[in-house]
Amino acid sequence: MALVEVKGVSKRFGGLTAVSEVDLTVNAGEVHCLIGPNGAGKSTLFKLIVGLYPPTTGSIFFDSTDITAERPYARVQRGMSIKMQAPSVFKELPVRQNIQVALQERLSGAECAAEEERLLALLNLAEDSGKLAGALSHGQQQWLEIGMALALQPQLLLLDEPTAGMSPEETYKTGELIKSFNAQGMTVLVVEHDMAFVRQVAQRVTVLHLGKIFARGSLEAILEDEKVAEIYLGKTHAH
């Protein structure tokens, strides 16, 4: 069953076409990775899905409803949640309050407090919960933002380069975290450069190149695709 359907979506900025006639289906329950070289249009596609940009043409469906004209908050209320590329937390607010803002619509009182503690522990942020979020390290801010995205318990979790700036161990842990949430039924769409991470989590992969869909399929099929290797994987096979 398709949870997200992107149909013929293009996005032009002035003369530049960032995303061109893209069709993408994300099925409910899968971990879907979006890969492609820099400038392929991955982040733009994400922003189109969450509604930060209106598409120039095409439409976007979530759970069979056309959401093309909806504002971001309405899409989030439908069950989406995003971690953006650059960590964007509430810098002048304490870590705990960052989590609270994300949780408070869903839970209240003691339940909220308990979930807060659980998330803070899960994210290794319990000790720093009183610090201002802006004072955290880059990696910790990434975790905090993933935590805020998870706190909404979305049907669909969109992660834009969740492991940028993380050590290999942290990256691995993030992968396991994503898999555990997926095992509980959460659909995940990830933009990622780190192929080790993609291998760890992906069930299906879509390759974007120059704003267009270049290839799509199971992880294995994509890994064996020579054309994909040429434009992208060739460089990353090395490590």
Binding site: Y73, S81, M84, S88, V101, E105
Partner: peptide, 24 residues
């Protein structure tokens, strides 16, 4: 209160607050 939480979160980063489902 929880409303205040959203008000200050919006001050800090309106886009992030909207991405948590609030019509800021």
């Amino acid at each position: 209160s929880s409303i205040g939480n959203v008000i200050v979160a919006t001050r800090e980063n309106p886009q992030r607050a909207e991405m948590l489902g609030y019509d800021v």
